[in-house]
């Protein structure tokens, strides 16, 4: 795993470190199934838009690049929206509007601006993919915690994504559902806990790593 990969997944994770794309992150992460679908669409959009923007990067100047980037992102999002409507209609009935809102996810424009328009195709695709994966994993972690604590289940409605019957996937946990976690305040609460957990691991790792050389603690994105 090289340094760039690690950035998107961990040290510069779009959701947990850059704190970008919070609107879908907080709104949709109440079940694993919802998180998974939104995360995958975001991942694909991010990879696709990074690819195209890197491809035409020499044709973009200061006056055209923002409208061009937004147009490319919006195109990918709309295609993703249509595909979800085609193949996962029931999920679309539940989180459809948030799929359209991926256009406004700052992670995507952030990567276009911050990386894709200045780097080659391969690097840009890789960046889009790892950043997207980092976002997807954060979203999944939120989904797992919120569904497990808030509803007392795991993988409910997964059949809407993969087909088959719900009982194939559904796991019932022994704990009583704690409704607050499924509601919007619970989303902030869980996200806060996840960020704290990540920082705790980072600190412990840093302490082990360097009793001699002290590294500055990284709390905000190095790009923003």
């Amino acid at each position: 795993m090289n340094n760039n990969t690690l950035q998107g997944l961990w040290s510069n994770n779009p959701a947990l470190v850059q704190l970008l794309g919070l609107c879908p992150l907080l709104a949709v992460s109440n079940t694993v199934a919802n998180s998974l679908v939104l995360g995958i669409v975001t991942l694909l959009v991010l990879t696709g838009s990074n690819l195209i923007i890197s491809l035409i990067r020499h044709k973009l100047d200061d006056s055209t690049r923002l409208p061009a980037q937004i147009m490319i992102i919006a195109t990918f999002v709309t295609i993703g929206d249509l595909l979800v409507q085609t193949f996962m209609f029931d999920i679309h009935q539940r989180i459809g509007l948030f799929i359209a809102l991926i256009v406004t996810n700052c992670t995507i424009l952030g990567r276009a601006e911050g990386f894709a328009r200045r780097n080659g195709i391969g690097a840009a695709v890789m960046d889009g993919f790892t950043m997207g994966l980092g976002f997807l994993l954060a979203l999944l972690a939120m989904g797992v915690v919120r569904e497990a604590i808030g509803s007392g289940t795991l993988f409910s409605q997964m059949h809407l994504v993969f087909g088959g019957s719900e009982s194939l996937y559904l796991i019932r946990l022994p704990n009583e559902p704690f409704l607050l976690i499924v509601l919007p305040p619970g989303a902030f609460f869980v996200l806060g806990c996840l960020i704290a957990l990540k920082n705790m691991i980072d600190q412990r790792y840093a302490r082990q790593q360097s009793t001699t050389t002290s590294s500055p603690r990284q709390t905000l994105s190095d790009e923003l």
Binding site: I56, K59, T64, P67, A68, M71, I72, A74, T75, T78, I79, L82, L83, Q85, T86, F89
Partner: peptide
């Protein structure tokens, strides 16, 4: 001209996907 060309390409892409998925949706 560049923006118009890009819009045209994006629009074409959307038309194709729309036509391909319209019936199922």
């Amino acid at each position: 001209g560049r923006l118009a060309l890009l819009s045209l390409i994006c629009g074409l892409g959307l038309v194709i996907v729309h036509l391909a998925t319209r019936h199922t949706i």
